[in-house]
């Protein structure tokens, strides 16, 4: 029970976010945006989840390279998988919102493109894993690729969209960071936004740990056969 406090916290936070996300008072910014600004509590945390999970994946890839234990490889692979799922959810929640706000689900915005590139890179990671049958070699080479891809991706993901004009906040000539323009937010929204980020990230970690446990059990079963 004590060990699982964070799962309870995750559950409580997400209940809070799901209820208050629809009830909290939001400022009416312009005729178009209206209540859809509530997407902040559901769309933006997906990206936080993705980036945190992918960072954890790289952390374990480096750990594997320093000390080649199969457990670390499972951690790296499953955190990358979880990151992809959350990235995909981020794209979908963004596309539904953009369909009403920007007129089409996909408008080739720098951040949309960046997200799509991130997903492609990590799908390539799984293709690379699938192409090798030798487990030791697969773990080592995919760990190398994981570190390399992460280092190539994230500088561009963090720097490039700020240099160009964008429909998202935080582009060239618009205020704020890539997540939100602080002028559009109220203190009540901020109080809900950070619990949402923590809650969704915890959910992502929860899903991933379940998959890791499954992998480890499958490994164990294979050893006994």
């Amino acid at each position: 029970m004590l060990k699982n406090w964070w799962k309870i916290l995750c559950f409580l936070l997400l209940i809070y976010v799901s209820v208050m996300g629809f009830l909290v008072k939001v400022p009416v910014l312009d005729g178009r945006l209206q209540q859809s600004v509530r997407n902040l509590f559901f769309h933006v945390p997906m990206w936080f989840g993705m980036m945190i999970l992918l960072s954890v994946s790289v952390f374990y890839a480096i750990k594997y390279l320093r000390n080649p234990k199969p457990v670390y490889d499972h951690y790296a692979a499953e955190f990358a998988r979880g990151g992809i799922v959350f990235g995909f959810l981020g794209i979908v929640t963004g596309a539904i919102w953009a369909n009403y706000q920007w007129g089409s689900p996909w408008s080739g915005d720098p951040k949309q493109n960046g997200a799509a590139i991130a997903l492609l890179i990590y799908m390539a990671y799984f293709v690379l894993r699938g192409s090798m049958t030798d487990i030791d070699k697969r773990s080592r080479i995919s760990a190398v690729y994981n570190v390399f891809a992460f280092a190539m991706l994230f500088p561009t993901l963090w720097i490039l969209p700020r240099l160009t004009e964008s429909l998202h906040p935080g582009g060239q000539g618009s205020e704020g960071n890539p997540a939100l323009n602080p002028n559009d937010s109220t203190p009540e929204m901020t109080m809900l936004f950070w619990p949402a980020v923590i809650g969704w990230t915890l959910l992502a970690v929860w899903i991933t740990t379940l998959r890791i446990r499954l992998q480890l059990l499958t490994d164990k079963q294979l050893e006994h056969e």
Partner: peptide
């Protein structure tokens, strides 16, 4: 990984886009 051409394209093209 012993699968030269195809893997190069799959791994390289997304990384090179930025």
């Amino acid at each position: 990984a012993q699968q030269q051409a195809a893997l190069m394209a799959i791994m390289g093209f997304p990384i090179i886009i930025p």
